[in-house]
Design a protein around this nucleic acid. Structure first.
Lengths: 193, 193
DNA sequence: TTTGGAAGTTGATGTAGGTTAAGAAATTAG
DNA sequence: CTAATTTCTTAACCTACATCAACTTCCAAA
């Protein structure tokens, strides 16, 4: 059944009994996004927490010069959303795009809040998920302020070993915060070692 | 009573009844940190969520050259912790220092987890707090990647109008991610306008 | 199978911000 | 009140990375 992965994901932090699993699953829907299509566009209100079961998504913004900046990647078993927009229900500026054909599970904000009432353990789950996200983000921010692009690339390679080979270089460059040109030069230099 | 501020802070997102308030308060303790003393040192395990009621704290790390980098400021009515260390209960690398004599309320990790069981609403409170923190951090990361130091300073001034005048410049410089020297130059330039 | 557009490479040149150093101003300690 | 220390300023020089441009490689659509 296609909800196996999400149940497994949740069971990392909380245990749902059979009935709770069923209640939870009733709130889910699935969707397939074709390669290069967007699940969310900047300017829209983000209505779903999204969980990837196949493929890969990319969350990014445009700066005032029209350049893209990758906020996060979501391979299978990852959650993604425009958190600002999801929380405030105001228009956000994150675009979420499929890097290949991608299958996701959608949990609407209203469902999520109903579930917090029906199954308080789920509120615990999302609290923990958000805490982990925050820690990772704080670390990334500090890395950006203290490390060189090369060191950041090294960390990226260790953290996402599978993604390195499937992602276009320009997206990795954007994630670590450099231009594709500089990233290319950097790589040829490190490869020589 | 000295717990007024924290009760008020919590009531922004959840409502505690009289009994719950009492239960909550039983888990709290207060502490005064003298100016320039540390509430937490890098290398230690962070055991408390800290809430500031008077004074101001600063969370920062050292990079490999021994330079400090400010992660956050905590004026009155703010929460602060080394989230990585608090969650994992492993040694962290955040230092938390008092910028002036500062009075705080401490909520130990074990108390916090007990309270999640006794008063589930508190788990909601901290979920929401963490979500807000995450959104602010994501925004700051994007700002660092897309804006100039001058633009980031401008944002800082709008977001923390009170802090600008009380904080030493070098700490603001560090927060927005530049050296004190560059920050000084930047300011004299913008003042001329 | 061809072809047109996207992705990656490479080189020349530009710039935001870093580094070092030395003096001036402001705090703090005694 | 003074000395000592920290913070801030200013200036000369330096570097990591950006920008622009031309070229090559790759791949997806017709």
């Amino acid at each position: 059944m296609s909800f196996n992965l999400i149940i497994q994901n949740i069971s990392k932090y909380i245990k749902l009994d059979e009935g709770e699993e069923q209640t939870f699953i009733k709130h889910l829907s699935t969707k397939i996004i074709k390669s290069k299509n967007n699940l969310l566009n900047g300017g829209e209100v983000c209505k779903y927490s999204t969980f990837v079961i196949r493929g890969c998504l990319r969350g990014f913004t445009f700066d005032k010069n029209g350049n893209e900046h990758v906020q996060d990647f979501a391979p299978p078993d990852w959650w993604i959303a425009d958190m600002y927009s999801l929380i405030t229900q105001k228009p956000g500026n994150i675009n979420i795009e499929a890097l290949e054909e991608t299958e996701v599970i959608l949990l609407s904000k209203t469902s999520q809040e109903e579930l917090y009432m029906q199954i308080p353990k789920l509120e615990r789950f999302f609290r923990i998920l958000t805490e982990k996200s925050l820690v990772a983000n704080q670390q990334r921010l500090m890395d950006n302020m203290t490390l060189t692009a090369e060191e950041r690339y090294h960390i990226f390679c260790n953290r996402y070993p599978t993604l390195i080979h499937t992602l276009p270089q320009k997206h990795i460059a954007s994630y670590i915060g450099v231009t594709p040109e500089f990233f290319s030069r950097m790589r040829t230099k490190t490869l020589k070692k």
